[in-house]
Each structure stands twice: as C-alpha cells, then as structure tokens.
Amino acid sequence: MIKLVDVHKSFGRQKVLGGINLDIEDGKTTVIIGGSGGGKSVLLKHIIGLLRPDSGQVIVDGVDIASLNDRDLNEIRKKFGMLFQEAALFDSMNVMENVAFPLRAHTKKKDAEIRQTVAEMLKAVGLPGVENKMPSELSGGMRKRVGLARAIALHPQIVLFDEPTTGLDPVMTEAINELIIETQKSFELTCVVISHDVQSIFKVGHRIAMLYEGKIVEYGTSEEIRGSSNPVLRQFLSGSLEGPISVM
C-alpha cells in the first residue's frame, strides 16, 4: 500500500506539490493525470524516493520512506520497478545486460539462469530474441518494452510508469497500453502510471487522480472520473482552451 500524506515540495521559489494526499490501492492501476509541467513526474519520484518531500510523508507498506537512510531506502526500492519516459536504458550495454542488470545486482543467480530469466522477460513484453541488440538499434516503442522487461525482472510488487505512451504512434501506444494491462494482471502488480494521454488513461486505469496546481483535485474510478463535474477535470479531458486551466 502506498500512501501520500500532505506532501509538499518546492524548487527554490517554485511550489510544485502543495499538500498531496493520495492512497494508492494494492493490485490495481492508478493513473495520475495532469498538465505538462504540473508536477506529475515529481510526484512519481517521491513515491520511489528519488526526491524527498519538504514536508509530509510517503508511506510504502507502512514505512515512511522520506525518513529512511540510503541503505534502508534501497531495501524498499527492491519492491519497485520503474519504466522511465525515454526508457533510460544503459546505452553502453546491450539489451541482455540491461535486463540482467538488476538480477546481477540483487540475486545470486548463475549466468545461465539469468539468461533464461532475461529471455522470459523479453518474451513477456513481446520482444523475444533481441538480447544482443544495443539500445541505439531499437525504436522508441521497443526501448520502452525493454525498459519494462528490466523493470519487472526482479518480480517487483509495484511498477511505476512515467508517461509510457508519450512520443509513440497510435498503434504502438495501443500496444504499450495492452502490455501494461497484461503485465499488471499476470504479475498481480500495483501500478502507478502518470500520463496526459486521455485515451490511455481510461484504458489502463482502475483509478484515476487529477493533479492540478500541486494538489489532487479529483480521485476516483474510471466511471466516477467520466461522470465528474469538476471543471478542471472536464477541461483537461475535453482539451478545451476555455476553463480554469490556463495555457502559459
């Protein structure tokens, strides 16, 4: 269970998170939506301890990770996998070494076992046989799928997705959405997805939270969100220029 309690974060004079309260349900996919530059990535980085809040608590399985030292935080992080926006594959390593990285770092598996696990993970994301390719030889969609294979290699409980469909064509967007749904089901994961792709939001999300001006202004199931009369949410979903969200 992930719980954010009154999380505040500023960078210099710029306030990014102004009191986030959010309960993320186990075994479900929660999508956090909001405008570009609205603090979605900052929120995600708090959940995995890449950023620490100025005040407030980020509780993962009953532990406030904001107060942990590096060693204890690393133990908590083993419960997580994360797919970065541009996949963040290590460009000095091939696909095999990328996916094997967490296995070599945190398990005592032998090389043959690691190769087998990597092959299974790549098959699970629909990319069998690409072990020897370098990240630079892969398309954007393929990189994201390899990134997902790396994120789930250690069988984490929670997987975070940072704008997984940004920059992809509609067909690849659909493929990645299907992959998130299938992976979530088959590994029984708790997923947190941040996105501003309206079609994907309703496809992958069991629960949806709207982040606006540093606060969660609406949180509910897909149906509740569709039926919400919140003007911020309505404007965001319709993509209208008229409404409380101003375009800078």
Binding site: K45, I48, L50, D70, N74, E75, R77, K78, F80, G81, M82, F84, Q85, E86, A88, L89, F90, D91, F101, P102, A105, H106, R150
Partner: peptide, 18 residues
C-alpha cells in the same frame, strides 16, 4: 552528464544500486 539527463543515473538508483 548524458546519463544524468537521460535518467540513466535515476534508473540506477531505482534499481537499488548506488
């Protein structure tokens, strides 16, 4: 620097590697 701006260093941290 390239690893930092392409989030590869964050990826290391996320994978519990200092």
């Amino acid at each position: 620097g390239t690893m930092r701006v392409t989030e590869q260093i964050d990826a290391l941290s996320v994978m519990a590697t200092n």
